[in-house]
Simulated scan of single mutants.
Amino acid sequence: MGQPVVHFEIIGKDPEKLRRYYGDLFGWTFDMRTPVSEAVSEPGNYGCVDHNTTSDGVGIPGGIGGGRDYEAHVIFYVGVPDVEAALQRAESLGGTRRMGPKKNPEGTLAVGHFTDPEGNLIAVAGPM
């Protein structure tokens, strides 16, 4: 079995407005207590989607964040055992590293971003 998609993010210059928009659109509520790397979002300006799965387990976790100095994008994260190794592999196959590995404030999770050969932004996440 391949590696699963484990998280999604919607990043923009006005994350509060984005959270209102997606909250109204899909009924999402947000937990603002989850700290993330400043490479991903301004501190205190990232909200994880609460109740992101149905009772039968359908759905993946996600979050909305960013800030004035962040480029707007939508991205998904693939869970990997080693973020650095995954980024190196992506590069060896024609991708371009864009960020990382960067760790979360607790130092328990690493993330990295790369673009595929067509320029699509993709992310990987795994243990530190």
Rank of each mutant, 00 (worst) to 15 (best):
A72R: 11
E71H: 10
R68Y: 11
K13Y: 06
E118D: 12
I75W: 04
R89N: 12
G100H: 07
G57C: 05
G107S: 03
D24Y: 13
Y70C: 01
V6T: 03
D31S: 02
G65F: 02
F8C: 00
V83A: 07
G44R: 08
G23V: 07
N45H: 14
V111E: 04
V49F: 00
T54R: 05
Q88E: 15
M32P: 00
D116M: 04
A90D: 07
E38Q: 14
G126D: 00
E9R: 06
P15I: 05
D50L: 12
S37T: 12
F8T: 01
D56N: 15
T115D: 11
T54I: 05
T108C: 08
E91A: 15
D116V: 03
E38I: 09
H51K: 07
N45R: 14
L93I: 09
H51M: 07
Y46E: 08
G95R: 04
V36Y: 02
T54V: 04
V124W: 06
V80K: 00
P15D: 05
R19N: 02
Y21P: 05
H73G: 08
P61E: 03
G12I: 05
V40K: 10
V6A: 04
G65E: 04
E71V: 14
N104L: 10
T34A: 13
I11N: 02
V83Y: 03
D31I: 00
A123V: 07
L93Y: 12
V74S: 13
K17G: 09
G100W: 06
P43E: 11
V111F: 07
T34W: 13
T53E: 06
I75K: 05
K13G: 05
P81F: 07
E71Q: 12
D82Y: 15
G112F: 03
